[in-house]
Amino acid sequence: MKIKIKTTTLLLSGFAALYTCTAAAQIQVSLNENPFGPAKSVKTAIQQELQNIARYTRNEGDELVHRIAQKEGVDPEQIIVGEMLDLLGVTLALKAGPGSEFIYTVPGYPALVNGAARVGGKVIEVPLTEHLENDLSGIAAKVNAKTAAVFLVNPHNPSGTVSDSKAFHKFIHEVSKTALVIVDEAYLEFADQYKERTALQNIKDGDQVLVFRTFAKAYALAGLSIGYAIAPKGIAKYLKAQGLGSTHDLNRLSIAAAKASLADTTYISEVYRQVNQERTLWHKFLEQQHLKHSASQGNFVFFDAQVPHDKIAGYLQDHGIQTGRQFAPYHTWIRISIGLPEENRKIQDLLKEFYKQ
């Protein structure tokens, strides 16, 4: 029996070592995470907060709400904390009733419309334009009395494209007279002209718009799951009454990390600089390889690999590179998150070898 236990232990240890080695060899460029990690001050804040982990949150969440409101230039009552897109879809569809319509761009990020569909909402899909941008005129044409919400991601995912700022703000102003417009700006910190592009200005101008932001992407807190929405006071009050935005649902580490992230006034600009530099190099590489790509302003590139997605993704997978899923109907296109410089060079070298075959 002792021999069996030792043998089993050895086998398990060997498997664990093999798994660790395999996991370490993987380059993750599949989920648009920030490979540079959070700011040093954020890591310090998380470590310091560990000593309080046995205690429930008290007013720490309310303090975070006030800091977010100060950053955005709005009243605290307009801030709804939490990673909420799925639950937001559920809540809005229940309010609007069965058959209410939710318009969004395909391919796209479906969390909100999936939530709405589960409780009777009807999903209305609008394809991207030929430039892989949100089709604002096409979306506007679908809006009617049944439309409960229009959901847009800007910069878009998976294409990374941004809409023309003037046209985008005009679109929101007009459409929000009929339906709530929800703009996911998860990737906006990676784009140029942040202040000119954000739909927050529409909220301040009185439009019925909800803007969603997350700490998961640019702030590199994907593992702590924290974000927030900014909304007109009436909409925010209703959503909070339905259970969204409770600060007691936040955990201590997320709060500490988010507060420290907001306190660091230089980190985001440095992340933008590094991502923009690598994105430019990626686009230059794709052009050198004669591979059509989108004009991405996100922390990822989206390009036509000229072969079925499974073939190029499988090739990279065999070399330890995890890439994004396929986005129909772009069956030969692939999305690759921007990694560390050395990771990007490795992937590009692999692609060069692939196209030499």
Rank of each mutant, 00 (worst) to 15 (best):
A179D: 13
I235M: 14
P127C: 07
V275E: 01
G245D: 03
H319N: 13
K95N: 06
A305E: 04
A24R: 06
G227E: 04
A96S: 13
A328S: 13
R118S: 01
A220D: 13
G138S: 12
C21G: 07
S246Y: 08
V81W: 00
P155S: 10
D249W: 15
V143G: 03
K2L: 10
A216H: 13
E101Y: 09
A229G: 13
S30F: 08
Q277R: 13
A117L: 02
E33I: 11
L10C: 05
S100E: 02
I235A: 11
A328G: 12
I338S: 02
R335E: 00
A148G: 11
P158Q: 07
T129N: 12
E49P: 00
L291N: 09
R197H: 11
T91L: 05
A167K: 11
Y315K: 13
L350H: 00
A25Q: 05
Q322A: 15
M84I: 15
T20I: 10
L262R: 06
P35G: 10
Q28T: 08
A25Y: 14
Q348T: 12
T22S: 07
T178K: 15
K95C: 07
F168P: 04
P158C: 04
H131E: 01
K122I: 03
T161Q: 09
Q48T: 12
T9S: 12
A117Y: 04
D249Q: 15
